[in-house]
């Protein structure tokens, strides 16, 4: 199952709930404002490291670049472009958007 989060972890609980609810072996994709979670050295790094133990974690590269934070990611996060986004969607049976 693919989890997609698009809200900043600093203003929304979406990422936190997603990590608590999601089952081992799922995929997590960070897009839009959720890409701030992928940055190393923030208050939510622990949460993201916890997510990495449970899921494969991806971040959408164009969204990182647009926000100027592409250079300092938490280790273990995989960058994807839009093609990679589509591949994740087709690879998984279902998808939950944590709006």
């Amino acid at each position: 199952m693919l989890h997609i989060v698009n809200k900043s972890p600093f203003t929304h609980s979406a990422l936190d709930t997603c990590v608590q609810v999601g089952q081992q072996g799922g995929d997590l994709l960070l897009i839009e404002d959720a890409v701030y979670a992928a940055v190393a050295g923030t208050a939510v790094e622990r949460l993201v490291r916890h997510a990495l133990q449970r899921f494969r974690v991806f971040a959408l590269s164009p969204d990182l670049e647009a926000r100027g934070v592409a250079g300092q990611l938490i280790e273990g996060i995989t960058l994807v472009d839009y093609t990679g986004f589509v591949e994740l969607v087709t690879h998984n049976k279902t998808c939950q958007s944590w709006l």
Partner: peptide
């Protein structure tokens, strides 16, 4: 609890997110 809900979500054919 959250993990039990996650398990149920995993068993679905279609998830509609709101």
């Amino acid at each position: 609890d959250r993990q039990a809900l996650g398990k149920l979500m995993d068993e679905q054919d279609v998830l509609l997110s709101f």
